[in-house]
Design a protein around this nucleic acid. Structure first.
Lengths: 208, 208
DNA sequence: AAAGAACGCTACGGCATAGTAGCGATTGCT
DNA sequence: AGCAATCGCTACTATGCCGTAGCGTTCTTT
């Protein structure tokens, strides 16, 4: 009614002006991600996406061959890679690493659609690959931070890195998905400090 | 074709023979839980439940006023309360507690439907209450174990119990829901031991 | 300004599903 | 054996959604 056409915000002028086709495509992807974040993957319908984006349903099908493909591309489009830092301090690196992952995965649209996405990934092989790949990428980031600390001698080299990553990731995932609470920077710090305490890593710089 | 009627296994003879109506009701609930565990809450259809259970769709609607109510009752029917133990040892109690929760929540039918259930719970207020109540019940079990240990002096009394429960539950939930792996008794023990190490609780009976 | 590409709109066909109506058959109880 | 409650079956309505056809309109490009 009062939103017949959603105008796409202009991207930085540095980039070349996208074609009309590309603008429409991005608009559809954007609206799809919005809707999926609201109602989930399965309940998002093409008609509703058409209505919200202002793009005709037939035009949507000119860009994407099926709903399944559209969903995969829309989800793929709203996943970003968290930034990495290498401060040389294990604690700071871990906090930065997991805070970045939290922002990338558990906040905003992706955060809202997470549960529905993981459920849909159980049945759609393409979404399954996407979700698995993302989860493994997150683990690789954390593993890299820990490996660097082992090489610096901050952690024992017979460490069960896999368990450690699980001990760090788990409480954050649990807080978000099961408890439905926001993962604050304070929680990240608490979890990191608690886990490091297991390995007798002093949090404040003091040696015993 | 070859399964026109699923016969209900007889329950222990000690209990009074249920009426025909009650038998059919339980059969429907059982088949519903099976189907939900397979395809999820949203994709489970009444027609399919009728077909699998051998109970006519019209009869299903004589027992349950709507699909929504049937889903809630079916899920409710397959949640059991994990058994509790009080061995007096914090480590044993925790392992027993979380192993029991794992069996109750992350294995069998309930385990298979967990992701779909949590997603559906975001939109169905009734399922939401059910899932939240169960999660809080799990937390209370773990909290009780920890409280007992605090009273015995095994843990400091200024402990952040909430964080501790999250640190214990998180890695198990993460392993099941995100990694899709089975939560073994060994993992439970590893997590418990790691977390207890944070608080300088000796795993083997030795005092420093 | 003209041509061609891209889009909007209306109207479909087809399928799956929630729920209901009516009637005949079965079951359990007296 | 008889009776009442319960169940099975075959429809049927209504809805929502995926995906497509055809045609007129708008935009972009030359």
């Amino acid at each position: 009614m009062n939103k017949p056409l959603k105008t796409l915000r202009w991207r930085p002028v540095s980039e070349p002006t996208p074609s009309r086709s590309e603008r429409v495509r991005q608009l559809v992807l954007d609206s799809t991600a919005d809707l999926v974040a609201e109602v989930g993957v399965e309940r998002a319908s093409i008609d509703e996406i058409a209505s919200r984006s202002g793009v005709a349903k037939t035009t949507i099908y000119r860009h994407f061959p099926s709903k399944q493909v559209l969903m995969v591309e829309a989800v793929h489009a709203c996943t970003h890679i968290p930034e990495v830092t290498d401060t040389g301090s294990l604690r700071d690196d871990l906090i930065s690493c997991f805070a970045g992952m939290t922002r990338a995965s558990y906040e905003g649209r992706l955060g809202n659609m997470m549960l529905s996405l993981m459920d849909a990934a159980q049945r759609d092989p393409e979404l399954g690959r996407l979700v698995r790949a993302q989860a493994e990428q997150r683990r690789r980031f954390a593993t890299a931070v820990i490996q660097r600390a082992i090489e610096r001698g901050e952690l024992p080299d017979d460490l069960d890195v896999d368990l450690l990553v699980t001990m760090l990731s788990g409480p954050l995932v649990y807080t978000k998905l099961v408890r439905g609470q926001r993962v604050t920077e304070e929680l990240v710090a608490s979890v990191v400090d608690s886990v490091l305490a297991c390995y007798r890593i002093p949090v404040a710089p003091d040696t015993d």
